[in-house]
Design a protein around this nucleic acid. Structure first.
Length: 773
DNA sequence: TACGGACGGGG
DNA sequence: GGGTACGTCCGTA
């Protein structure tokens, strides 16, 4: 049979590990094929023969082979130790790791299915041909995959609604109250059972969610456990497995690839997005130009009581939006899978650093290198404690409002720097050439004679990207689209290499390499900046990899930005490339230091369509009250539309309304989650103080509960004055707190830059309060 | 000033 | 077999 590889794992059958490969054939039919493979790891022996004797006494060991592999730049002789079961690889290593016969063990923590794919040189989305004897790679295009998205709604810890949508748009809505176009079930348990059946009937290859690992599947598991329902989503009727991963569990389904789009956005895509907020609404708006009406938790509770039809519509729209977003993002995930060799399931959940790491691991394997071991926990800690090295070059922002701004992006600079100066752990201060590439402001240098492992691979990536871009020029629109996804994937991995050198958990960690790349980078960026100034731009702000400019004299910013880029890219060495990130009508720049604390990038831009791009200012999260949250956004929008006076008036109005208690108390509610059980708290924040009070009154307080409170007048710390939001009357709230810690704080973030002080927002009602301070 | 704790996404 | 990110900002001590 011939199939396109989508997923893999292994099972133990009759005491033997069996690899299972999952995929679809040309007609889109799901297939599973199995293969035998033997787990192993490498040992660098001190005494080869004696070690072999010792290994042969270990029951788990099934065979030993002598092999030559490269360790760094040198070829060494290793023992390849085969064991019976994958889980016995680390156990066998434990038995010999302290032996005087062993210098070091390697590759003992590579998952068995990854080991198999790596050794066979199988990449996800490869077409494989399997017969009774063996599996070989063949050619084939992209198969048609059935994609299904789902979304749940929850009220009071109960799932009240589930919607599903697939790539044909066909949908289903399950609930247990009467609703239009819904399938109405008897209760929550029946609904979950029905959902499981629907998924199996629909038989998707890919299941997509938005934060399904962190929420929907967790919630389903909890409720299914309560009703003793088996979440048998697997193609073999197996239940969903919750794999413990680095920081959260991932919902894994046999035979179907569960892709959590939020994880991919958060881990990989976020640096390339304009938005700093990664809600489904924001991300979908940016990527597919389609958003959604957002409902608050309270809204959902109210709608469940009063307007189930509308809630159903909301729920439907969420799964539909998720499936549309998947159509946009899956090609990107697949291209990264093809490049890094990681299964789409893993690839969509890897962090930036691990994505590079797995790319390097597979390449190392293919080039005959032994993969360096992961650093030990104490080594990672040691790396983290090192003082930070000098990073990117920062130009302090020119505080205030500016018109007609061009933003240039230097991000492709780092891969070019790594290649140009051969920056790699093995080429650092080599013995062969004392006159290597010297690092600015340092005594370190990099080899000129031998290509480094990492720098060589980054070079391949850059060359590949050039090739793809060349191909794009002569290809049709469908091919072009796929090629574009390919070049983006290449760019993602190439760009991540720099950060990877400084990532404390990295196998190819090299602080000197990161330092060097930063130093060479600073040099080149400074050159680009002076070129921009010579051209006639005023530099408004720059930080590491981005540059904000406006024209010194009147002119067309878009035209000038274009011709500047053309000019500078001709004079830039090698692959160094400056890109235009965008043109903006107006921008507000906030200095990095406000009062006592410093912050990174803080600015807000507005484009010609009136769309806002906000960085570093949107600290207004759920532990702020709605009044403050909305005020900051409105103030920003007004300021960027040159309606500064209106902004100030709005702040004054809000101050006045808060002072006069002419405000809806629900706009003053602050929410904070209890992250642990009450007795574990050392510090008593407002939410903890309130929770303790409620517990004494006989309420049951559990970890994970969200406390909703309002700060009231009275004596003591803020914490002592937090009262449950549903008990607070309009006369109770603390005007001072809401003005000075919420409303004015948030307004000043923006307006301080334009020279305003808190006195400027004083009204008759509030001036007395300011005078007192 | 240092440090504990929460935030993110989802509902 | 491998540690619950990680950078930021609030409030308390």
């Amino acid at each position: 049979m011939r199939f396109c590889l989508l997923d893999a794992d292994y099972e133990i059958r009759d005491g033997k590990p069996i690899i299972r490969l999952f995929g679809v054939d040309a007609k889109g039919k799901a297939l599973i094929t199995k293969d035998d493979y033997q787990p192993y790891f490498y040992v660098l022996p001190k005494n080869k023969d004696k070690l072999k004797e010792k290994l042969n006494t270990i029951k788990m060991v099934r065979g030993i082979e002598e092999v030559k592999r490269k360790l760094g730049l040198n070829e060494r002789e290793f023992l390849k130790v085969f064991v019976d079961l994958p889980q016995n690889v680390p156990l066998t290593r434990d038995e010999i790791k302290h032996s005087p016969l062993v210098e070091e063990c390697y590759e003992y923590s590579v998952n068995f299915y990854k080991r198999y794919l790596m050794d066979k040189k199988f990449y996800p989305l490869d077409w494989l041909e399997a017969d009774d004897k063996k599996i070989i790679k063949v050619t084939g295009g992209m198969p048609k995959l059935k994609v299904l998205a789902f979304d749940i709604e929850v009220v009071d810890d109960k799932i009240i609604m589930i919607s599903i949508a697939d790539n044909d748009g066909c949908m289903k809505l399950l609930t247990y109250k009467k609703a239009k176009n819904a399938e109405v079930l008897k209760n929550e348990g029946e609904m979950i059972k029905r959902f499981v059946k629907l998924v199996n009937d629909n038989d998707p290859d890919i299941i997509v969610t938005y934060n399904g690992d962190g929420y929907d599947f967790e919630m389903l598991r909890k409720q299914a456990d309560a009703y003793k329902i088996d979440l048998a989503f697997g193609r073999d009727k197996s239940s969903v497995k919750f794999a413990k991963r680095a920081h959260m569990s991932s919902a894994r389904i046999f035979g179907r690839v569960h892709i959590d789009l939020f994880k991919f956005v958060n881990n990989i895509l976020s640096p390339q997005l304009q938005s700093e907020i990664f809600t489904l609404n924001e991300v979908a708006t940016e990527l597919i130009g389609e958003g959604k009406d957002e409902l608050s938790m309270e809204d959902i509770i109210i709608l469940w009581k009063s307007d189930v039809d509308r809630l159903a519509e909301y729920c439907r729209n969420d799964s539909l939006l998720t499936v549309k977003l998947a159509q946009k993002m899956l090609p990107q995930i697949f291209e990264l899978s093809k490049l890094s060799g990681q299964l789409p399931f893993d690839c969509s959940r890897l962090t930036y650093g691990l994505l590079v790491e797995w790319f390097l691991i597979r390449k190392a394997n293919e080039l005959g290198y032994i993969v360096p071991n992961q650093p030990h926990w104490n080594e990672i800690q040691k790396r983290r404690e090192l003082r930070p090295y000098k990073g990117g070059y920062v130009i302090e922002p020119r505080q205030g409002l500016h018109d007609d701004i061009a933003v240039f992006d230097f991000r492709s600079l780092y891969p070019s720097v790594i290649v140009t100066y051969n920056i790699s752990p093995e080429t650092l201060n080599c013995k062969c050439c004392k006159g290597g590439h010297k690092v600015p402001e340092s005594n370190n240098y990099f080899c000129r004679k031998r290509q480094g492992f990492v720098s060589g691979l980054v070079k391949e990536l850059i060359d590949k990207r050039m090739e793809i871009k060349e191909m794009m020029k002569t290809s049709g629109s469908d091919d072009k689209k796929q090629l574009d996804e390919q070049q983006k994937a290449v760019k993602i991995i190439a760009n991540a290499a720099y950060g990877f050198f400084a990532y404390a958990g990295a196998r190819w960690y090299c602080r000197e390499c990161a330092e060097a790349a930063a130093a060479f980078g600073r040099e080149s960026i400074k050159q680009s900046i002076s070129a921009a100034e010579d051209y006639g731009f005023a530099v408004l702000y720059g930080d590491t990899d981005s540059l904000f400019v406006k024209l010194k004299k009147a002119g067309n910013i878009e035209k000038e930005a274009g011709s500047f880029l053309e000019k500078i890219n001709k004079s830039m060495p090698g692959m160094i490339e400056l890109e235009l990130q965008g043109i903006y009508k107006r921008g507000l720049f906030v200095p990095q230091k406000i009062g006592a604390y410093t912050a990174k990038k803080r600015y807000a831009l507005i484009d010609n369509k009136g769309k806002l791009l906000v960085r570093g200012l949107e600290t207004v999260r759920k532990n702020w009250c709605d009044a403050a949250r909305h005020l900051q956004h409105d103030v920003l929008r007004l300021v960027l539309n040159k309606k500064e006076k209106d902004a100030v008036r709005l702040v004054k109005e809000t101050v006045e309304r808060v002072s006069r208690r002419c405000i809806d108390i629900k706009d003053l509610v602050i929410r904070t989650q209890l992250g642990k059980s009450l007795d574990e708290y050392k510090a008593t924040g407002p939410h903890v103080a309130l929770a303790r009070k409620l517990e004494k009154e006989g309420h049951i307080i559990r970890e994970g509960m969200v406390m909703s409170y309002v700060i009231t007048t009275g004596k003591g710390s803020i914490a002592e004055r937090a009262a449950p939001s549903d008990k607070v009357k309009l006369d109770d709230y603390d005007v001072d707190y809401y003005l000075n810690h919420q409303i004015i704080t948030v307004a000043l973030r923006v307006l301080q830059v334009l020279g305003y002080k808190e006195e400027d927002f004083a009204t008759k009602e509030s001036s007395e309060r300011f005078a007192k301070k």
